[in-house]
């Protein structure tokens, strides 16, 4: 019995080595094909029970996880914060203990507090996958961004990737910074200082204050969602001015001396952080990101459940008995 290749939980990309990240991306490759079949199901996680525990609204991430679980034949239960005992004042630790008592195998958790996934992982035996904790990390989003960049450019090392917008409040940004840096990309950040964490440069990223400079520098722009409530909180004066100063517009992109890959973790505010002509343009890979999300999550679930990476190909074979986690 060998040690599981990723450890027990996936809390963040900060905790993973470059080899572990590459392993997940490589394991995702064979799973991509599963979703292209008429019958989108393999038996790799048959008999496993997975709880999707969402303390925060989510459409895309929750559905993506659910598809990934179902296509691996796991049994899944969705728990949303509204309508659950959480609303009745149950603490996170009690929720965890109760889930554990039901003998589940894995928990996918989204929570508004940074550190909630690690908190849960430290207290239950089941595998915990972070589907976004506060402003900390969103590792599967980071992984699907990496996979999409690798698909498009054939490599990650040496590329220049700039995160644009609200880095301060973005868990996607943190997972991107760790994942990209570990795989040898250069990372830039661009946005107003009000939306940048203090000390961000110390993480080894290039800081841009003008979007034009970021566009000229980068091979890839990952445009972050601007939460509209940030305006009410006084971080920016208005959405209009934000778009005028930091918006990723077609005019700005056209001035770039080379083609620029455009990414966005969604959901987009068209006309706020990104121009529709850019989002829907020829260099946008925004929908590829969504497609890759399912494959990456299948890979993470498979590896955390103890699946052997070299058997991922076999695991997707129709009705294959071997290869699944023991």
């Amino acid at each position: 019995m060998t040690a599981p290749p990723l450890g027990k939980d996936l809390v963040g990309l900060e905790d993973l080595s470059a080899d572990q990240i590459r392993l997940i991306l490589d394991t995702a490759e064979p799973f991509k094909e599963v979703s292209e079949r008429p019958i989108k199901k393999v038996p790799a996680l048959r008999g496993k029970t997975i709880v999707n525990l969402f303390f925060e609204a989510s459409t895309r991430t929750r559905i993506s996880f659910e598809f990934a679980e179902k296509r691996l034949s796991a049994d899944t239960v969705n728990v949303a914060a509204s309508g659950s005992s959480v609303d009745k004042g149950e603490t996170l630790v009690d929720t965890a203990r109760n889930l554990e008592a039901m003998r589940i195998d894995m928990v996918v958790i989204r929570h508004p507090s940074s550190g909630a996934a690690a908190f849960l992982g430290d207290r239950i035996r089941s595998n915990v996958i972070n589907a976004g904790d506060g402003q900390h990390e969103h590792p599967t989003q980071g992984l699907l961004d990496l996979l999409t960049i690798r698909d498009k450019h054939g490599k990650i090392a040496g590329l220049k990737v700039c995160l644009v917008g609200d880095v301060l409040h973005s868990r996607v940004a943190r997972s991107n910074i760790w994942g990209l840096s570990k795989l040898g990309a250069e990372v830039g950040v661009c946005g107003p200082d009000t939306l940048m964490p203090r000390g961000i440069e110390e993480l080894g990223v290039c800081r841009f204050r003008r979007i034009e400079e970021a566009i000229e520098w980068a091979d890839v722009l990952n445009v972050l969602r601007l939460q509209l409530e940030r305006m009410e909180m006084g971080f920016i004066p208005s959405v209009r001015e934000y778009y005028r100063v930091f918006g990723v517009t077609a005019e700005r992109i056209e001035k770039a001396s080379r083609p620029l890959t455009i990414m966005h973790p969604g959901p987009m505010n068209r006309g706020v952080e990104i121009d529709s002509r850019v989002a829907d343009g020829p260099h946008s890979v925004i929908l590829d990101q969504v497609t890759n999300g399912v494959a990456v999550r299948m890979a993470v679930l498979y590896l955390l459940a103890g699946g052997r990476p070299e058997l991922a190909d076999a695991a997707k074979g129709p009705g294959a008995g071997g290869g699944g986690p023991e």
Binding site: D133, H136, R174, R198, E202, L203
Partner: peptide, 15 residues
């Protein structure tokens, strides 16, 4: 404390 550690942990800092 607002600083590099709070930036990494995604926790709101007190300057």
């Amino acid at each position: 404390h607002e600083g590099l550690v709070s930036a990494r942990l995604g926790l709101k800092g007190i300057p």
